[in-house]
């Protein structure tokens, strides 16, 4: 039986400082999720995204004692990943032209925004949606990725982006409008 079985992320995080091996459990739990998230924020930058992913886990380890167990570990690590990715993009002055979108992601996303976009009588295609997301401003792209691709709740997005929940709702609303506007200019 694995030492991490039955333990929540938050409970494991408390143990990490005394037992390095426990950290590998958290890495295994979040590696795939964070890689997917970083690839969405940094499309076409595979190797760099891998480096950022490694930095994210190192930051988690170094700041383990700063984690507040009463808060969600998932939101905390996503916040670190978000900050690292955005910081990297700004440092390199890189701007993604598209967003990695799998078939399932595309279907989920379309189902979420169809009310806003289908009224224009235009079918969404996977390629155009990916390019539309890539062409959006970073803060709005991030919100749509977190809400509709990562399926995060408003509370989780609030903790990841460090903004009030009411602001998250406003950002989602504005992001949808920007998506529609950019989409129309793309087709």
């Amino acid at each position: 039986m694995n030492i991490c079985d039955g333990q929540t992320d938050e409970e494991l995080m408390v143990l990490v400082v005394d037992d390095r091996a426990v950290f590998s459990c958290l890495i295994e739990r979040y590696e795939a999720k964070l890689r997917r998230y970083l690839f969405r924020l940094m499309p076409g930058m595979g190797e760099d995204a891998e480096d950022v992913l490694q930095d994210v886990f190192l930051k988690v380890y170094v700041n383990a004692r700063g984690f507040d167990p009463s808060l969600s570990f998932s939101s905390w690590i996503y916040r670190i990943a978000h900050n690292e990715a955005v910081g990297w993009l700004r440092k390199k002055k890189a701007r993604p032209e598209t967003v990695e979108l799998g078939d399932d992601d595309f279907q989920t996303f379309v189902a979420s925004v169809e009310e806003d976009v289908y009224s224009r009588d235009q079918a969404l295609t996977q390629d155009v949606v990916a390019r539309t997301l890539g062409a959006m401003r970073e803060k709005y792209r991030t919100v749509l990725v977190l809400k509709f691709l990562e399926q995060k709740s408003y509370e989780e997005i609030s903790d990841i982006l460090r903004v009030p929940m009411g602001t998250v709702a406003t950002l989602v609303h504005r992001a949808k409008k920007e998506f529609t506007s950019v989409y129309e200019s793309q087709v």
Partner: peptide, 16 residues
């Protein structure tokens, strides 16, 4: 990745 990170932590004496 897990192994690589733990080796890096140990090798470079990274501490919380």
């Amino acid at each position: 990745l897990s192994t690589r990170l733990l080796e890096k932590i140990e090798g470079e004496h990274v501490e919380p």
